[in-house]
Simulated assay, not measured.
Amino acid sequence: MRHIPNALCILRMLLVVPIAWLLTAGEYKATLWVFAFAGFTDGLDGFLAKRCGWMSELGKILDPLADKILLVSVFITLAVIGVVPVWLAATAVLRDVTITIGAITYNALYGYPHGNPTVISKINTLCQIVYLLLAVAAKAGEWAPDTALLILGAMVFVTTVVSGIDYVVTYTRKAIAASRAKHGLA
């Protein structure tokens, strides 16, 4: 049972292929359901891990990785097919690339970063999921007012930038402290 959260993360990663295929095929209603299910697995795996004590080191890697793969893939696909602005997709992708490169670099220099998502990062992920769901819903012909998309798009942009800056500042400070400790300067 304790492996259920990790299995949900892997399932979320596997759902990226059918979601991208459905989007490019113009099957927006089907995409909406599969993407909503993928978003649900994100909440469920975190809930189960915390509530049941099923957290693991693997899960700490899989969960953010699954989020990044899903959201980056959907942003890129929707930008390519003209559903979301390219600049907004590029902002989201650049944030995740920056965080990933920073984590890899930190790990190579100082070891595993033992980081937890910040509040702004969690808000950003939620905003991105809701925005992307609403953008797909609009293409599916479901109710999705332009004003809501505009407001959520702005929220995605702001939380993406703030979250990216927060990660860079936090891990730069952590790297400086780790470097000082490594060289006996602390």
Rank of each mutant, 00 (worst) to 15 (best):
G141M: 04
S121R: 03
A66K: 12
I76N: 03
C127G: 02
K29E: 08
L88K: 02
L8H: 07
P64W: 09
T91M: 11
L14C: 15
D63P: 04
A103S: 08
A140R: 01
G115K: 08
I69M: 14
L65H: 07
L44E: 07
V130D: 02
A66F: 01
V119P: 02
A36C: 12
G102H: 06
T118P: 03
G59E: 13
K29I: 09
F35C: 01
S56V: 11
L133G: 01
A103Y: 09
A135Q: 00
R51F: 11
Y110W: 14
L71V: 09
A7R: 11
A90M: 10
V84P: 04
I101A: 15
H114P: 00
A36I: 13
I76M: 02
W143I: 13
A30G: 11
L133M: 13
V84N: 00
N6R: 01
Q128Y: 01
R95Q: 04
A38K: 03
S56Y: 10
T118A: 07
I10F: 14
V84L: 05
T125D: 06
A90P: 01
I101L: 15
G43A: 11
V119H: 07
I120S: 04
A138M: 07
W54P: 07
V119W: 03
L71T: 00
L134W: 09
G59H: 13
S121N: 13
I61A: 02
I99V: 15
N116M: 11
E27Q: 15
Y28R: 03
L15E: 14
F47M: 14
A38P: 03
A79M: 04
S121K: 03
K60M: 07
K60G: 15
A20N: 00
P117T: 05
I101W: 12
A108E: 12
F75K: 02
W33N: 08
A66L: 09
L134T: 09
G46Y: 08
L71H: 00
V130F: 11
D96K: 09
T100K: 10
R95F: 03
G26C: 13
Y28E: 03
I120Q: 07
K29F: 06
V119R: 11
W54F: 13
V72D: 06
